[in-house]
Protein backbone atom coordinates (compact mmCIF):
# COMPACT_ATOMS: atom_id res chain seq x y z
CA UNK A 1 0.00 0.00 0.00
CA UNK A 2 2.74 2.43 1.04
CA UNK A 3 4.75 1.38 -1.96
CA UNK A 4 1.82 2.08 -4.20
CA UNK A 5 1.34 5.48 -2.61
CA UNK A 6 5.01 6.27 -3.10
CA UNK A 7 4.86 5.21 -6.72
CA UNK A 8 1.85 7.40 -7.17
CA UNK A 9 3.62 10.38 -5.57
CA UNK A 10 6.67 9.78 -7.71
CA UNK A 11 4.62 9.58 -10.89
CA UNK A 12 2.72 12.68 -9.91
CA UNK A 13 5.94 14.59 -9.24
CA UNK A 14 7.46 13.32 -12.47
CA UNK A 15 4.39 14.42 -14.32
CA UNK A 16 4.56 17.98 -12.95
CA UNK A 17 8.30 18.25 -13.51
CA UNK A 18 8.09 17.34 -17.17
CA UNK A 19 5.22 19.79 -17.75
CA UNK A 20 3.17 17.92 -20.28
CA UNK A 21 1.73 20.55 -22.57
CA UNK A 22 -0.75 20.54 -25.42
CA UNK A 23 -0.16 21.99 -28.85
CA UNK A 24 -2.74 22.63 -31.56
CA UNK A 25 -1.66 21.82 -35.09
CA UNK A 26 -3.23 22.74 -38.43
CA UNK A 27 -2.68 19.79 -40.77
CA UNK A 28 -3.21 19.69 -44.54
CA UNK A 29 -6.03 17.24 -45.24
CA UNK A 30 -3.88 14.96 -47.40
CA UNK A 31 -1.60 14.35 -44.39
CA UNK A 32 -4.43 13.30 -42.05
CA UNK A 33 -3.50 9.63 -41.67
CA UNK A 34 0.27 9.84 -41.19
CA UNK A 35 -0.10 12.79 -38.82
CA UNK A 36 -2.62 10.95 -36.65
CA UNK A 37 -0.08 8.15 -36.29
CA UNK A 38 2.82 10.56 -35.69
CA UNK A 39 0.81 12.39 -33.00
CA UNK A 40 0.22 9.11 -31.15
CA UNK A 41 3.96 8.30 -31.25
CA UNK A 42 4.75 11.86 -30.15
CA UNK A 43 2.53 11.51 -27.11
CA UNK A 44 4.14 8.19 -26.21
CA UNK A 45 7.69 9.54 -26.50
CA UNK A 46 7.34 13.00 -24.95
CA UNK A 47 4.19 13.01 -22.81
CA UNK A 48 3.02 16.13 -24.62
CA UNK A 49 -0.30 16.11 -26.47
CA UNK A 50 -0.75 17.14 -30.08
CA UNK A 51 -4.29 18.14 -31.03
CA UNK A 52 -4.90 17.98 -34.77
CA UNK A 53 -7.17 20.04 -36.99
CA UNK A 54 -7.51 19.00 -40.62
CA UNK A 55 -8.43 21.22 -43.54
CA UNK A 56 -7.28 22.87 -46.72
CA UNK A 57 -4.06 24.85 -46.56
CA UNK A 58 -5.52 28.03 -48.07
CA UNK A 59 -8.34 28.07 -45.52
CA UNK A 60 -5.85 27.64 -42.68
CA UNK A 61 -3.91 30.70 -43.85
CA UNK A 62 -6.99 32.95 -43.64
CA UNK A 63 -7.88 31.43 -40.25
CA UNK A 64 -4.37 31.93 -38.84
CA UNK A 65 -4.26 35.52 -40.09
CA UNK A 66 -7.55 36.10 -38.27
CA UNK A 67 -6.44 34.83 -34.91
CA UNK A 68 -6.81 31.03 -35.00
CA UNK A 69 -5.07 29.39 -32.01
CA UNK A 70 -2.90 27.03 -34.11
CA UNK A 71 0.76 26.76 -33.12
CA UNK A 72 2.17 24.72 -36.00
CA UNK A 73 1.08 24.59 -39.64
CA UNK A 74 1.71 21.51 -41.79
CA UNK A 75 0.87 22.74 -45.26
CA UNK A 76 0.21 20.78 -48.45
CA UNK A 77 2.61 23.08 -50.28
CA UNK A 78 5.41 25.57 -49.60
CA UNK A 79 3.65 28.73 -50.83
CA UNK A 80 1.19 29.02 -47.93
CA UNK A 81 3.84 28.76 -45.16
CA UNK A 82 5.97 31.32 -47.05
CA UNK A 83 2.99 33.68 -47.16
CA UNK A 84 2.53 33.32 -43.39
CA UNK A 85 6.19 34.08 -42.71
CA UNK A 86 6.04 37.12 -45.01
CA UNK A 87 2.95 38.38 -43.21
CA UNK A 88 4.79 37.94 -39.91
CA UNK A 89 2.56 35.21 -38.47
CA UNK A 90 5.24 32.50 -38.51
CA UNK A 91 8.91 32.02 -37.70
CA UNK A 92 10.86 31.91 -40.94
CA UNK A 93 13.86 29.93 -39.64
CA UNK A 94 11.62 27.10 -38.47
CA UNK A 95 10.28 26.24 -41.95
CA UNK A 96 11.32 22.87 -43.43
CA UNK A 97 10.01 20.30 -45.91
CA UNK A 98 8.50 17.45 -43.90
CA UNK A 99 7.37 15.42 -46.90
CA UNK A 100 7.60 15.32 -50.69
CA UNK A 101 4.33 14.38 -52.37
CA UNK A 102 4.45 11.75 -55.13
CA UNK A 103 2.08 11.82 -58.07
CA UNK A 104 0.52 8.70 -59.64
CA UNK A 105 -1.83 8.17 -62.54
CA UNK A 106 -4.34 5.73 -61.11
CA UNK A 107 -7.44 3.77 -62.09
CA UNK A 108 -9.59 1.58 -59.85
CA UNK A 109 -9.67 -1.04 -62.63
CA UNK A 110 -6.88 -3.60 -62.77
CA UNK A 111 -4.62 -3.51 -65.85
CA UNK A 112 -6.13 -0.25 -67.07
CA UNK A 113 -3.21 2.12 -66.52
CA UNK A 114 0.04 0.74 -67.97
CA UNK A 115 3.41 1.11 -66.24
CA UNK A 116 4.64 3.80 -68.61
CA UNK A 117 1.56 5.99 -68.80
CA UNK A 118 1.15 5.31 -72.52
CA UNK A 119 -2.63 5.35 -72.04
CA UNK A 120 -2.46 9.18 -71.89
CA UNK A 121 -1.43 9.34 -75.56
CA UNK A 122 -3.61 6.39 -76.57
CA UNK A 123 -6.85 7.78 -75.08
CA UNK A 124 -10.11 5.82 -75.09
CA UNK A 125 -11.53 7.29 -71.86
CA UNK A 126 -14.28 9.84 -71.22
CA UNK A 127 -12.89 11.57 -68.13
CA UNK A 128 -9.53 12.17 -66.51
CA UNK A 129 -9.59 13.49 -62.94
CA UNK A 130 -7.09 15.87 -61.39
CA UNK A 131 -7.09 18.29 -58.49
CA UNK A 132 -7.79 21.96 -59.24
CA UNK A 133 -4.34 23.24 -60.29
CA UNK A 134 -5.03 26.66 -58.76
CA UNK A 135 -5.83 25.23 -55.31
CA UNK A 136 -3.87 22.01 -55.01
CA UNK A 137 -0.18 21.40 -55.72
CA UNK A 138 -0.98 17.88 -56.96
CA UNK A 139 -3.20 19.46 -59.63
CA UNK A 140 -0.47 21.84 -60.74
CA UNK A 141 1.95 18.90 -60.92
CA UNK A 142 -0.52 16.92 -63.05
CA UNK A 143 -0.76 19.80 -65.54
CA UNK A 144 3.04 19.90 -65.74
CA UNK A 145 3.16 16.18 -66.53
CA UNK A 146 0.54 16.46 -69.28
CA UNK A 147 2.36 19.41 -70.85
CA UNK A 148 5.71 17.62 -70.70
CA UNK A 149 4.13 14.64 -72.48
CA UNK A 150 2.51 16.90 -75.09
CA UNK A 151 -1.01 15.60 -74.40
CA UNK A 152 -2.38 18.64 -72.53
CA UNK A 153 -4.37 20.08 -75.46
CA UNK A 154 -5.98 16.80 -76.46
CA UNK A 155 -6.90 15.82 -72.89
CA UNK A 156 -8.05 19.18 -71.52
CA UNK A 157 -11.68 18.73 -72.70
CA UNK A 158 -11.84 15.49 -70.63
CA UNK A 159 -10.75 17.10 -67.33
CA UNK A 160 -12.84 16.74 -64.20
CA UNK A 161 -11.32 18.79 -61.39
CA UNK A 162 -11.59 17.92 -57.69
CA UNK A 163 -11.55 20.71 -55.14
CA UNK A 164 -8.69 18.88 -53.45
CA UNK A 165 -6.81 15.65 -53.83
CA UNK A 166 -9.29 13.68 -51.65
CA UNK A 167 -12.21 14.64 -53.89
CA UNK A 168 -10.12 13.78 -56.95
CA UNK A 169 -9.50 10.34 -55.45
CA UNK A 170 -13.28 9.95 -54.96
CA UNK A 171 -13.94 10.67 -58.64
CA UNK A 172 -11.57 7.87 -59.65
CA UNK A 173 -12.27 5.35 -56.87
CA UNK A 174 -16.01 5.44 -57.62
CA UNK A 175 -15.26 4.89 -61.31
CA UNK A 176 -16.93 8.13 -62.38
CA UNK A 177 -13.62 9.05 -63.95
CA UNK A 178 -11.81 6.11 -65.56
CA UNK A 179 -8.46 7.40 -64.37
CA UNK A 180 -6.87 10.37 -62.67
CA UNK A 181 -3.83 11.93 -61.07
CA UNK A 182 -3.87 11.25 -57.33
CA UNK A 183 -1.32 11.13 -54.53
CA UNK A 184 0.73 7.96 -54.09
CA UNK A 185 -0.11 8.21 -50.37
CA UNK A 186 -3.79 7.62 -51.20
CA UNK A 187 -3.35 4.41 -53.17
CA UNK A 188 -0.37 2.70 -51.56
CA UNK A 189 0.52 0.95 -48.36
CA UNK A 190 4.12 0.21 -47.40
CA UNK A 191 5.22 1.07 -50.91
CA UNK A 192 2.75 -1.17 -52.76
CA UNK A 193 -0.28 -0.08 -54.78
CA UNK A 194 -3.27 -1.47 -52.88
CA UNK A 195 -5.88 -1.69 -55.65
CA UNK A 196 -6.48 -0.97 -59.33
CA UNK A 197 -3.61 -0.05 -61.60
CA UNK A 198 -1.16 2.82 -61.48
CA UNK A 199 1.71 4.57 -63.17
CA UNK A 200 4.18 6.20 -60.78
CA UNK A 201 5.00 9.42 -62.58
CA UNK A 202 8.81 9.84 -62.87
CA UNK A 203 10.27 12.75 -60.88
CA UNK A 204 11.66 14.48 -63.97
CA UNK A 205 8.17 15.19 -65.33
CA UNK A 206 7.07 17.55 -62.53
CA UNK A 207 8.61 19.89 -59.98
CA UNK A 208 8.80 18.48 -56.45
CA UNK A 209 5.60 18.82 -54.39
CA UNK A 210 7.11 20.25 -51.21
CA UNK A 211 4.95 20.03 -48.13
CA UNK A 212 6.39 22.49 -45.62
CA UNK A 213 5.95 22.75 -41.87
CA UNK A 214 6.31 26.04 -40.03
CA UNK A 215 6.18 27.13 -36.39
CA UNK A 216 3.64 29.90 -35.86
CA UNK A 217 4.29 32.91 -33.64
CA UNK A 218 1.65 31.68 -31.17
CA UNK A 219 3.64 28.47 -30.55
CA UNK A 220 7.02 30.12 -30.10
CA UNK A 221 7.06 29.62 -26.32
CA UNK A 222 5.18 26.34 -26.04
CA UNK A 223 7.60 23.47 -25.31
CA UNK A 224 5.14 21.00 -26.85
CA UNK A 225 5.13 22.88 -30.17
CA UNK A 226 8.93 23.09 -30.21
CA UNK A 227 9.17 19.38 -29.36
CA UNK A 228 6.80 18.45 -32.17
CA UNK A 229 8.80 20.40 -34.76
CA UNK A 230 11.83 18.33 -33.65
CA UNK A 231 9.85 15.08 -33.54
CA UNK A 232 8.74 15.50 -37.18
CA UNK A 233 12.41 15.14 -38.18
CA UNK A 234 13.03 12.05 -36.00
CA UNK A 235 13.41 8.58 -37.56
CA UNK A 236 10.17 7.46 -35.89
CA UNK A 237 8.24 10.17 -37.75
CA UNK A 238 10.09 9.88 -41.05
CA UNK A 239 9.48 6.11 -41.12
CA UNK A 240 5.75 6.73 -40.81
CA UNK A 241 5.88 9.44 -43.50
CA UNK A 242 7.67 7.09 -45.92
CA UNK A 243 5.28 4.24 -45.15
CA UNK A 244 2.42 6.40 -46.32
CA UNK A 245 3.92 6.98 -49.75
CA UNK A 246 5.75 10.25 -49.30
CA UNK A 247 9.45 10.85 -49.82
CA UNK A 248 11.83 13.07 -47.92
CA UNK A 249 14.15 15.70 -49.37
Amino acid sequence: MILRLLTFCFLFAFHTFTHAETTLIAVAANFTKPMTEIAAEFEKSTGHTAQLSFGSSGKFVSQIENGAPFEIFLSADDKNPIKLQQDDFAIAESRFTYALGKLVLWSNAANYVDEKGAILAKGGFQHIALADPKLAPYGAAAIEVLKNMNVFDTLQPLFVEGENIAQTYQFVSTGNAELGFVALSQVSENGKITSGSAWRVPDNLYSPIRQDAILLKSGEHNPAALALMQFLKSPKATDIIRNYGYELP
Partner: peptide, 20 residues
Protein backbone atom coordinates in the same frame (compact mmCIF):
# COMPACT_ATOMS: atom_id res chain seq x y z
CA UNK B 1 -11.38 25.70 -37.36
CA UNK B 2 -12.04 21.96 -36.88
CA UNK B 3 -10.63 21.84 -33.32
CA UNK B 4 -11.25 18.54 -31.46
CA UNK B 5 -13.91 18.75 -28.70
CA UNK B 6 -14.22 22.53 -29.09
CA UNK B 7 -15.51 23.19 -32.59
CA UNK B 8 -15.40 19.81 -34.36
CA UNK B 9 -19.05 18.97 -34.94
CA UNK B 10 -20.36 15.84 -36.65
CA UNK B 11 -20.46 17.21 -40.19
CA UNK B 12 -16.81 18.27 -39.86
CA UNK B 13 -15.83 14.93 -38.32
CA UNK B 14 -17.43 13.12 -41.28
CA UNK B 15 -15.43 15.38 -43.59
CA UNK B 16 -12.26 14.42 -41.65
CA UNK B 17 -12.99 10.73 -42.15
CA UNK B 18 -13.61 11.25 -45.86
CA UNK B 19 -10.39 13.27 -46.25
CA UNK B 20 -8.50 10.46 -44.54
Amino acid sequence: GNIPDKTRVVSVQIYNHVEA
